[in-house]
């Protein structure tokens, strides 16, 4: 079986995978990083979003072998101990999550947005979230969370 190596949340990891192994499967099944979720099979819900070399990507729609050598950040890699990343903190502060299932992907996507567009308007935030589906919140408080985090991330 092919071997894949990458950096995940700052730590070098490697493992044997089948060619068909998706990045999300490698993260969840082999590394037991189960914070990254799978909510659909058509690459639309965004529960699986992680950062690949700093850019948000859907880990359900890439092979583990495709990211050989890359730096991956997952939801588990954001907080510093018990101190949350400003985006995580803003979601907590604004009730930007309910069941929590879409939340990891939502947070990872939102961080990429604020990095690229620190002063995103409400409309721009809503448009950016096209690839992240939430069934619980109606998005109202997610948008509010991202707006607050953008301010706290120096946007």
């Amino acid at each position: 079986m092919p071997t894949v190596s990458m950096t995940v949340n700052g730590k070098p990891v490697s493992g044997e995978v089948e060619a068909r192994t998706l990045l999300v499967q490698f993260l969840r099944d082999q590394l037991r990083l189960t914070g990254t979720h799978v909510g659909c099979d058509t690459s639309q819900c965004g529960a699986c979003v992680v950062h690949v070399d700093g850019e948000s990507a859907k880990s359900c729609t890439m092979l583990a072998l495709q990211v050989d050598g890359a730096a991956i950040t997952t939801i588990e890699g954001l907080a510093n101990g018990e101190t949350l990343h400003p985006m995580q903190e803003a979601f907590r502060n604004n009730h930007g999550l309910q069941c929590g299932f879409c939340t990891p992907g939502m947070v990872m996507s939102a961080i990429d947005l604020v990095k690229k567009n620190p002063k995103a308007s409400e409309t721009e935030i809503r448009e950016w979230l096209e690839g992240n589906i939430c069934r619980c919140t109606g998005y109202h408080n997610i948008v509010k969370s991202i707006q607050e985090a953008a301010g706290n991330m120096g946007g």
Partner: peptide, 9 residues
């Protein structure tokens, strides 16, 4: 095209 994550890949 698609969503931001699709556009990234």
């Amino acid at each position: 095209i698609g969503d931001p994550q699709v556009r990234n890949r």
